[in-house]
Design a protein around this nucleic acid. Structure first.
Lengths: 192, 192, 192, 192
DNA sequence: CATGAATGAGAATTCATTCAT
DNA sequence: AATGAATGAATTCTCATTCAT
């Protein structure tokens, strides 16, 4: 058996339990003891893997964010045209938020509350660089609106989170047609 | 002395303290004792005004949401053209989020975490109806894209929250030009 | 209107409320505020009639005890024969416990817990003297067993409390026949 | 080390502390913190052994009641004559109330106040059945008065509690002669 | 006399973290 | 590494009592 495998399994179990419980109850309403129980380990064991509760969420945040950005750039390469590249990335992100609902909802909770602090959040953002590069290239080519990348993000990527939240709450169904429709809106809002 | 004045002042102080502390620390990391201290009353006094901690946030949420929607429809009336009406509402919302940063951030925290529950959130939404009516009128006139109101909201209104968050974190400055720019993007994403 | 009447009505209402609430919840689970509400007065008003909560129960105890002993000696006079006298007193006590269930249950609670303290309890006992005198006369006449008055009380009077408790809990019905039967047992246990 | 020893010792210490403190102060005037301190454990530890304060008293009540009934039937067997059987049980009960004063007083407090509720009390009663059986046998043999078992209990067993209370308060001394005397009274009150 | 808002000490309970095993 | 009993500080909430009106 792989040296790390057994402990990696426990670590993974702890992370999954944290995501599920924080999603349902919020960070501070999630006791370490419940996380331990759901992960099938003892309370003290958590502290072999994580320094303390804050370190636990921080690491969960960073790992989920990394998984998210990795997913976002699947099948993307810098040789693609700006439009094709954006479509690829946008749909990856949409697919992630649809398929990995728990992870996505966890991220949205961390991004909208003070449970992880600024430095950690900054660290989580660094992997999004290729999208910013793509936008800059598009702006140089006159394809993308010459506005701040924050605006581009706000109007093309951020809306996906809202649609996911609504679907999560059961008030809205994100069908494939809705996704295509939404992609068109995203693209129209940033293209020139 | 005005009948309500003294107790209304305390109630207001409690609500303000709640907003500020929850914004900075999160709901569960905000003890009632701190809220009381910041509001300048004793711990027990909170319970003269609110049933318990949950009731306190619920009421704060509903009041802030009401203030927000009331702000959103300033100077708006149903005789306006669809485009003019939308511009009015959109800019009101942007102004609210810029001026009443604390309130806006509090709402975004409640809307993205399980601290207020679905029934309360539903109640908070009811005042947004005039915007939905405007969109429907626009769709009938062929001015607005025929997509779900959730999509319209996601791509035109929701992005403002992101820009506000970024400004809140100091990584971005929402100047009047930025706002005009953002309004244009919002309008282009939903107009036909 | 009689000078004291209005305040006496309130005092009475407070005493009645105390009895009812302490019976149902116990002394320490009965807040002054609830007593006030049930008595139809404001919380502060209690302190115009009683020094504090302890003083309130003490006074309720003493008054109910006085009512009890007064009831116990109805139609009794020292010229009666020992047997007739005992029957009169015993049946008065039984009648009181049957009719004034609330008062009787309150007394039994006070007599079996530390809610009123020894001096007050002693004070409450002083009115029972005629019964002790009767017993002593009976002993001198050779009619009553020559045992401690505590034993006489334990076997002839105290059992009534048990029967009342059982009736109170609904597991037993004290019919007139039961009472006669019980009286016979009481008398047989103390007579020579 | 014995599997149960360490935690059983703590559990026992908590139960003993509860009895002593409730006896002296009453249930609601006994804070969990004091129980913990007297038992030599930390406040939080109580909740490892008992769900909450109510569960604690309930369990103490049931255990003490079980100890009481077990004590009551020492050296008793169903082959004994009715009179001998009753004497055995009665004197056991008297001995228990004399020797285990704390336990006995605790029971009398629970039996006369609303601190444990009816279902728990019912559960505590189930072990008294052999005495009821004995009485029924005695009634069939014409030895025991044909009255409700509640009456038999009220006049033969319940009085012991009163004598114990008086001794507890120091106003009365239960010497062996007093006990014999009391037993005679008990027996005479129920025999035919 | 009467009110009832306000107080603040104190209660029950929870939970992050430690540490002996 | 892993456990889980134990801790005790912190939290929510209650309630006897006071006092300005």
């Amino acid at each position: 058996m792989n040296i790390t495998s057994k402990s990696e399994i426990k670590r993974k179990a702890l992370i999954d339990a944290t995501i599920e419980l924080v999603n349902n109850n919020g960070f501070h309403a999630t006791p370490m003891s419940k996380i331990a129980k759901m992960a099938g380990v003892s309370a003290g064991t958590i502290y072999l893997y994580f320094e303390n509760k804050q370190d636990l969420v921080d690491q969960v945040y960073l790992e989920v964010k990394a998984a998210f950005t990795s997913y976002a750039f699947r099948n993307y390469n810098e040789e693609m045209s700006v439009e094709k590249g954006f479509e690829t990335i946008w749909k990856n992100i949409a697919e992630f938020k649809l398929k990995e609902v728990e992870e996505a909802y966890f991220l949205s909770q961390c991004d909208n509350t003070p449970i992880v602090d600024e430095p950690v959040r900054q660290q989580g953002l660094k992997h999004l660089q290729p999208l910013l590069d793509l936008w800059e290239k598009g702006q140089q080519q006159g394809i993308i609106k010459k506005v701040s990348p924050y605006s581009l993000y706000a109007f093309s990527i951020y809306p996906i989170a809202f649609l996911m939240n609504m679907q999560q709450r059961g008030v809205y169904q994100l069908t494939p047609e809705h996704i295509e429709e939404a992609y068109e809106m995203a693209w129209h809002s940033i293209k020139n």
